[in-house]
Nucleic acid binder design. Sequence first.
DNA 1: GATGAATGAGAGTTCATTCAT
DNA 2: TATGAATGAACTCTCATTCAT
Lengths: 173, 173, 173, 173
Amino acid sequence: MTEKKRNIIDAAAQLFSSNGFSATSTSKIAEKAGVSEGLIFRHFGNKSALLDTILAEGEQRLKSYYSDIVFESDPREVLRKIIELPFVLTAEDLEFCRLQTKLAWEMNATNSSHLKPHFLKVELAFKKLGVDNPKMETDVLFYLIEGINAALLNAKIEDADAVKAFLINKYLS
Amino acid sequence: MTEKKRNIIDAAAQLFSSNGFSATSTSKIAEKAGVSEGLIFRHFGNKSALLDTILAEGEQRLKSYYSDIVFESDPREVLRKIIELPFVLTAEDLEFCRLQTKLAWEMNATNSSHLKPHFLKVELAFKKLGVDNPKMETDVLFYLIEGINAALLNAKIEDADAVKAFLINKYLS
Amino acid sequence: MTEKKRNIIDAAAQLFSSNGFSATSTSKIAEKAGVSEGLIFRHFGNKSALLDTILAEGEQRLKSYYSDIVFESDPREVLRKIIELPFVLTAEDLEFCRLQTKLAWEMNATNSSHLKPHFLKVELAFKKLGVDNPKMETDVLFYLIEGINAALLNAKIEDADAVKAFLINKYLS
Amino acid sequence: MTEKKRNIIDAAAQLFSSNGFSATSTSKIAEKAGVSEGLIFRHFGNKSALLDTILAEGEQRLKSYYSDIVFESDPREVLRKIIELPFVLTAEDLEFCRLQTKLAWEMNATNSSHLKPHFLKVELAFKKLGVDNPKMETDVLFYLIEGINAALLNAKIEDADAVKAFLINKYLS
DNA sequence: GATGAATGAGAGTTCATTCAT
DNA sequence: TATGAATGAACTCTCATTCAT
């Protein structure tokens, strides 16, 4: 990948994330990336394919967080790790989550949260721990995590560590 | 308010809600409302003032849900009512919440959830009930409600009543 | 029809006729018509619908030439009139024929010559006059007229009247 | 000439012939030819020089048809050969004639028909055969041949042989 | 109050062409 | 010879907005 192509992706990601997809013009992307507008189309074909590229790149980065949970067998550890997930994202990955959520709202797409694949794993953990209604308990935990994520993405949580500790205590003590 | 003005507001609300603000053109609004494009500007001045009108109208409708909680003194009832809030919205009001959240994401506005005014009320309730960390407990409850709200708005919850019952049981038993 | 809409049609007709369809930009049309470029799209939707409008208008004008032949019963008069047709067009109508032929070549469309409807009429005339192979004779006459038309449109015929007289003599003496 | 250069010429000829000059982009030519876009400019300098190359190559091919007529002395044979000319072209040469005519219309160039050089020859033939107005007779024959050519190029003539026979009979019996 | 003509700015995209490799 | 990155100008078309009626 050439430097200019990289610049386009980065500039577009930032602008999409702060202004949204349709409010970001290709000319502004080109300007921010320091390239000619035509280059965007030479590399990506069209604006929405550029978005796809960005999205795919981000998904790729998030995948690294999954493996940590997938191979965990201790139910308590599964819960701990799924709760911690929103808090351990790097600033860059958090930024990508923001973009993902923002676009999900803009495009009416179901935000395919990166948590989803772990649903069954968590349900099983609750089952092993003997809770009353493991399916519902999982649902609710995921709603909670989504809510925290949204707050986190918009920097509405002041002391994230305290929240994390509180939750872990709530679910694992 | 003339019928045509009403039509504009309704058409715009629907289009903003499904396509977003900047992806909705005034010409499409006029077409859907069955009026000339110029009339939009005659009545509202510009596109974003039209949005403001819609938003204000919606807020007004939501206010009716507040009063029910504001004057509640029983702490357990406060909790019950705040938890039930997302589930008792009419379809129309739910639709407006969708719009509100969608726009909050599009505009980078802090989604001034209609729950917020009740924060202190809920915190006090938790205090009265003698929980360990009332502030944090309130935070978490609100994150959870936000998460449920988001899921509700996107029709991702199948059996809403079951979720409601589960939560009330969790917090009030 | 407003004056500006009229101007657009006229300007476009001239430019299409001299430069062809795809080599004529909407911005040049707007400039020549003295209107904003957007107005073209407000009135016609897109560039090719503008072309359709021009074409339809021209066809309409050419229709007036038809009726003269349609009701002719004398076979010799039919021949005389069909031969004279290319020579009696007004300058404006000739210009439109140029456009029509030019576009037929550009678009790979079969140039639906305005002569076609008279094919059977002419064949019948030849039959009445007792020629050997009326169908073929008609075909050839039409090829000839097409050739003359093409030459006429490109101003390659110096003394048109002489050609007309020669042909009438050839076919009717 | 390298294979790639050949491919460019062939691809361009086909595309110009079916879509016209200005509606054919160099990128499409490169794609069809299976070469990089830059190579077109390396070989031909610019798009219109590529066209010139194609045109010149085609003219060269058509020249072979001329010699047959140039050295003919029998006036009846001259007429026969000139009439037969449009019908004896190979499919490939016919395709080139199509391109030539199409471009003549697109560029407002006088279609330098390959017949022209024979004008005087034909006029002389008519003179020798003692027709009344040899100049005019030649003009008309050429108009007719142009008309037939146009029909032939657009595949509008079903039974070409019959037309040929009919004409030869008309002019030589 | 309501329309429809009109606009200028800017949208996404394609163009012929250049140039370093 | 051949490529592919890169460009700036031009393309068709849409935008929010104004204004005379």
